[in-house]
Design a binder for these strands. Structure first.
Lengths: 213, 213, 213, 213
DNA sequence: CATGAATGAGACTTCATTCAT
DNA sequence: CATGAATGAAGTCTCATTCAT
């Protein structure tokens, strides 16, 4: 007397089709960029007719938007929890950085979509652009909060938490994208460790101990 | 049969026209992205006929390519000399970072084109993409060399120079683009100083003196 | 093997569904025109699935055709009897004209469909067009017969009955459609009285009494 | 040393092409209606490529609009002057009515476009619809003014000028369209004379002289 | 070299109709 | 009979590129 599966027979099928479309679109968008992929191409890759796509997404931009949201949801779910992990701020940041490797393993192509058009006018429209900005700020806000806490407690040097967060984000973004492009070449785990060293130790050797800005 | 002055008159005119086209294209591409600008639009902005553009550039992609090259040339000319400046490595990096502010002041729109589509498949074609990669590597190569030298001399901590260079590049790129978008809001000079602090001091407070990876 | 009640239960249901579809289609066609209404839209308005419509009508054009027939049937049923009313021809025409007001009150939206595309190539196809023509001629034939009778009996002036019928039809059609568009603004009853005056008295003042063609 | 022809060489060619497009579009629209004609069809009929149409008209609706305006301009130019002709109102109306025959002779197909979709939701958009309304009102306004003058001077019976104008317009529109459809069958000249009789004499025989509403 | 009208392939999107459930 | 997802042809419009003047 299970109630759940009953209404879903058709619904599950529909969701499966939706996923197939999203999946095909993700692969193509990540490979060729928004403007260089046609709806017919996506439809063919998903093995549907052109019009079928429009039963699931109201426009090409909408399809891209949904893809962005789904991808971001999963990506943030992987790395953001690190910033609330038990332990001090150093541990949190360290975990945050290292978890990026898992992101690449889990959704290499998805990442390319997420970082696609990171800084350009290549975005399909203002709605997509706004969403992207929102996601970025969500990360940077939490990240700078953790850094600020570390500074307040005296564990971290007295650097600007917002700028430090931006630097770290940018560095991770760049490395991750490179790794997503050449999954076999790069040793992301090792690279992330090195990033940790760069940001934790800094460049300058602490000659003695006392330094200020 | 004068050789020197005769051809230069026409040649200069031709170069002037070429520059006008490049200038109009730069503004439009930086504002709206490669795919959202039409050749007709560029021609109108440059006050030439459509066909005239094809007397200077063999295709839309070629026009974009030339723009990228010219822009990169100027940008690299601004910041790369810092890495060969007399003085130690700390000084060189510090100068390198601070010179980025000048880049933004000098060619705010150009920067948006240069970083346009930094990490995506938005690029017009493989040739443009390859050029972009070449430019990036040129910076990172020189940058990591300087960092490696600093490490070797014992001025810098023992971090990976290549990774450090990538982190620094990525951070600067991100900040610069944000500043190029909102020229009045951002205080880039101050931000770059903070970036310097982040990378020089690192996050962790040197608790005494002994640290390792 | 009961014959009477058994099939009628289902049949009545079927007819009810058919009517609901026709009703929804009428409203939409009248409001937006044949080409601007989709079968999906009609189905949604009638609260049926898309495919269900094709159990009742073989095509969109067929649905429109049936609508036209049903609407015309009712409209003619309202005004045509006037032309067979007891009384002389003047009375019949007067009644005929005045009954048009009732038509508007009874089926304002239906009228818009009926007169929709009155004179254009907007009709879905030749079949619909032919039907429309047939209906128009049915009115004009009867109307001109009444007028001819009036002329023969010496009650009416010696004008061409066919042309007079066409003029009267056209005038009524125009006024009715305008009234159907703005039901509250127009005072159709008064306007129809004035139409009667125009057609009965004519423009020229009978200066004395003797006139000819 | 003529100055006029010099700048026009290319311009005349362009205008000629524009006319060819308009001409082909007129024929097709009049024959099949707005929605049943595709831009590719028009382009093929005008012997141009599809895109060329958009160098002259910004959209299909715009093309239709221009056609409507041009057609109306010419049509009004033919019949409206009659209402300002020297002579009394009876003469003016008579001339106005008879000039409609010339309209049909001069631009039979154009008329079908003008009256196309006279009363329906078949119009491409609100802009076209508004223009059509404006044109209709321009005629009716002038027409009712003339009728009102005739009434005031005592030449015409005391009927409502606005309603009378509408009746006359509707009647003429209907007859003209029928004539434009079957140019050879109809004897429009004769029919228009009969229309004149219908409207001038009215139906009712002036039995003695006294009549009222 | 400059012009700009012409081209035509291709993009996105709609929608009448079908069919398996 | 009801359903509604799937279909795919067709429509409007854009735009990089060409070429005769």
């Amino acid at each position: 007397m299970t109630l759940a599966p009953k209404p879903s027979r058709k619904d599950r099928e529909r969701q499966r089709h939706r996923q197939e479309i999203l999946s095909a679109a993700l692969r193509l968008f990540a490979e060729k960029g928004f403007h260089s992929v046609s709806m017919q191409e996506i439809a063919a890759a998903a093995e549907f007719a052109t019009g079928t796509l429009y039963n699931f997404f109201s426009s090409k931009e909408d399809l891209f938007f949904e893809l962005l949201v789904a991808t971001a949801e999963q990506g943030l779910g992987t790395v953001l929890p690190a910033l609330d992990d038990p332990g001090d701020e150093r541990h949190r940041l360290s975990l945050f950085i290292r978890l990026h490797a898992r992101m690449v393993h889990e959704q290499a192509t998805a990442l390319r979509l997420y970082m696609l058009e990171s800084r350009g006018r290549c975005l399909p429209g203002p709605r997509v652009e706004a969403k992207k900005k929102e996601i970025d700020e969500r990360i940077n806000l939490r990240l700078s909060a953790v850094i600020a806490a570390g500074v307040r407690k005296g564990h971290f040097n007295n650097i600007d938490p917002v700028i430090a967060a931006k630097c770290l984000s940018a560095a991770l973004e760049t490395l991750i994208l490179a790794a997503a492009k050449d999954p076999q070449t790069a040793d992301l785990d090792a690279d992330l460790k090195k990033v940790e060293a760069v940001f934790f130790k800094g460049l300058l050797k602490s000659s003695g101990g006392k330094r200020d800005t």
